[in-house]
Design a protein around this nucleic acid. Structure first.
Length: 684
DNA sequence: GAGTTTGAAACT
DNA sequence: CAGTTTCAAACTC
């Protein structure tokens, strides 16, 4: 921490920024602090102070100096490119709630002061309310690399949570962190009805306090840091716009926007969220970067968010990088990763606790799995580590964490672009050329997205579907693919034997199915022909069902955003090449009781790129509307012929179709299409 | 790091 | 719908 305390190295930073950074630690930074103190003590100051209602408070806003890059995407903070029109509306809505005052964060706003600036904001807030200056360098090392993941931290126990919230009725504060930027913001999600609540607005005024800039390096203390001024907590309310210091918020959101393409309510996922009506729950969202060293990772935990869903800019962190930082992290703070990976959290026991405290989260998983899950999650989360870039390049695929593309010709507006395909904006770490997949070009992104979706509604849907069964059972024949885990479209491999990541099935950690047109399939997760093939047929219907679930629900309990579905940011625990997936893999993907997929210690499947561990959904968890109606779903009527006939409709094998019949096809359509659009709407 | 291979995505 | 081209990731050296 000490290092961080030292502020910035960037001399370029504007004064304000410095103040911000320094402010927290004035005591430490004698240089700056001293002058200020003197100034404040001066008669002139007093005089001025008496004259002006304005409090001499700190430079809260100051932090703005943000790296333009990071904020570039102010434009549509919550609108993700993936968002369909419907979703867009949602996002808008969300946006209003969260930040009514600021209709627009233009990416260009950099000038505005935003305490929350990510890059600039290197201040870490401690629970005690003190802030530490973080060494900008930390952030610099990977300024924007990190994918923004939003993690929600919850207090260990309800009591803590209570502390955080200014009003018990009020939602818990949301802390958002941008892993890349290290920026954090705390948002209290308050019932709209309860806007005013008991919060001390003065505290709100000190947005700076609320804002938390966490350096990646922050370790165990991080969690504590997350919530600043617990009592004050409420910085933002949905309605808050009215009361909030918007500037602060704006900064906050900016950070969010940068990374979050989608911020939406988890309509479909509400269920997962557990019971919470969704309105009340609050979550601390963080996208964090905990690790300076990259070694520090935080455990993300999901909790039931009241209807809050974040579509993160891809959770793309590479799994390897993420680690459980500290025992503390895992145990102490509860963070929810909202986003694709969020589902994971549900599994963790801790998460469960948290959830319970909050009102009920769905506890999906086995505790035993928790650790692995956590690890996996953590790994993803920490994009900031110095290694990330390299990894991205090397492993990017492995994790779905932060996407970093290298597009040269597609302008990042085609599915060739991983970022775009994942529904996230390209970020600094991307090496793309002529990239249009940026907030600045939001319109274009949305338009393109729509076009693609018009062609293939499922284009942005998750490629791999994992059902509860998805995990291969240990000890069983490797060739057998989990019933529920399948690549929707199936692969078309000719030369790779489905043993390399060229193969989407393999990449996704699932076996090939009847849908695959691969030749010479040797997929370690389950070959197309052979035992697995049989299983596939039998499972075909099951798969459909599963698909439906997925489509409609976010296994994570998060709001299913179309985008999210696209790629699970979270990778299998084993995603890292170096790290054997074995243990983690199964645990993650399965909601319950999965055993090592292969039972083969030696076998280390690559981390699934599309993996849906988090997507795994139990049927029982399935939203009623889905359950009842998958068949009844409005979409159900849709036929296989999707705009994108090629990829959308999988069933190639006559056998499958035969067994399943038309029903199946209809179901699948439902699955795919629903998630993106209708489901959200309906849920909302 | 550059070049090759691969298969999805896009196009015809 | 099938074939071809384009593209970028995965892979190899």
């Amino acid at each position: 921490m000490g290092d961080r305390v030292e502020i910035s190295e960037k001399e370029n930073n504007n004064i304000e920024e410095r103040e911000v950074m320094d402010t927290p630690e004035r005591s430490k930074n004698c240089q700056i602090a001293t002058p200020i103190a003197k100034f404040e003590e001066s008669p002139v100051f007093n005089f001025l102070n008496s004259l002006s209602p304005i409090r001499p408070i700190k430079s809260v806003h100051i932090s703005q100096s943000i790296n333009p890059l990071s904020f570039a995407s102010l434009g549509s903070v919550f609108t993700s490119p993936h968002v369909t029109s419907v979703r867009e509306s949602r996002f808008l809505r969300r946006h209003q709630l969260s930040d009514p005052s600021k209709p627009e964060f233009s990416s260009d706003d950099q000038t505005t002061v935003d305490p929350k600036n990510e890059n600039t904001a290197n201040v870490t807030t401690h629970a005690d309310g003190q802030k530490e200056n973080i060494d900008p360098r930390d952030s610099e090392c990977e300024p924007s690399y990190n994918c923004s993941k939003f993690v929600v931290d919850f207090p260990e126990d309800a009591q803590e949570m209570a502390d955080y919230t200014c009003d018990s009725s009020v939602n818990a504060p949301f802390v958002v962190r941008d892993c890349q930027t290290n920026m954090e913001g705390v948002i209290h999600h308050v019932d709209q009805d309860k806007e005013g609540t008991s919060c001390d607005w003065d505290s709100l005024i000190n947005a700076s306090d609320l804002l938390i800039f966490e350096s990646p390096v922050v370790n165990g203390s991080e969690q504590e840091n997350v919530f600043t001024q617990p009592g004050d907590g409420t910085e933002i309310t949905d309605n808050a716009g009215e009361k909030m210091d918007y500037e602060h918020l704006s900064g906050f959101y900016r950070g969010m926007r940068r990374r979050c393409l989608v911020f939406e309510m988890g309509g479909g996922r509400k269920k997962h969220m557990a019971g919470s009506s969704g309105s009340d729950s609050s979550a601390l969202l963080q996208s964090d970067d905990n690790n300076t060293s990259s070694s520090d990772q935080k455990l993300l935990r999901t909790t039931k968010l009241p209807g809050i869903g974040l579509h993160l800019n891809a959770l793309a962190a590479t799994p390897k990088e993420y680690k459980l930082v500290n025992g503390q992290d895992s145990s102490t703070s509860r963070r929810l990763l909202i986003g694709p990976s969020s589902s994971v959290d549900f599994n963790s026991s801790n998460a469960g606790q948290e959830l319970l405290s909050n009102g009920g989260l769905v506890n999906l998983s086995l505790e035993g799995e928790i650790d692995s899950v956590e690890n996996a999650v953590v790994d993803e989360i920490n994009p900031c580590s110095p290694k990330k870039k390299r990894r991205k390049v090397e492993q990017a695929g492995d994790g779905n964490s932060c996407k970093r593309c290298n597009c040269k010709k597609s302008k990042c507006l085609k599915l060739y672009c991983e970022c775009f395909a994942a529904g996230v904006y390209c970020v600094e770490p991307c090496a793309c050329i002529e990239c249009f997949n940026k907030p600045i070009h939001e319109d274009m992104v949305l338009m393109t997205r729509k076009q693609i979706e018009s062609r293939n509604p499922l284009a942005f849907a998750p490629k791999v579907i994992r059902g509860p069964d998805s995990i291969v059972e240990t000890g069983e024949d490797l060739s057998k693919t989990p019933a529920s885990a399948r690549h929707k479209r199936g692969c078309n491999c000719k030369k790779s034997g489905c043993l390399k990541k060229y193969c989407e099935c393999y990449q996704g950690g699932v076996g090939c199915s009847m849908n695959c047109r691969c030749e010479g399939c040797k997929n370690a997760f389950g070959i197309k022909d052979g035992s697995c093939a049989i299983g596939h047929e039998a499972e075909a219907e099951e798969d459909e069902i599963e698909n439906d679930h997925e489509t409609n629900m976010d296994p994570c309990g998060l709001p299913a955003t179309p985008l999210r579905a696209t790629r699970q940011s979270i990778e299998h625990p084993f995603s890292s090449k170096k790290n054997p997936p074995q243990s983690s893999f199964p645990s993650i993907s399965s909601s319950s009781g999965f055993v090592d997929a292969f039972g083969n210690p030696n076998f280390l499947p690559p981390p699934p790129k599309f993996s849906k561990h988090f997507e795994t959904v139990r049927e029982d968890e399935m939203p009623e509307f889905l359950q009842e109606g998958s068949s009844s779903s409005p979409i159900s009527g849709i036929k296989l012929s999707s705009p994108n006939r090629k990829r959308v409709s999988p069933p190639r094998s006559s056998s499958v179709e035969t067994s399943i019949g038309g029903l199946r096809s209809s179901r699948k359509l439902i699955l795919q299409s629903i998630p993106s659009f209708p489901s959200l709407t309906s849920n909302q």
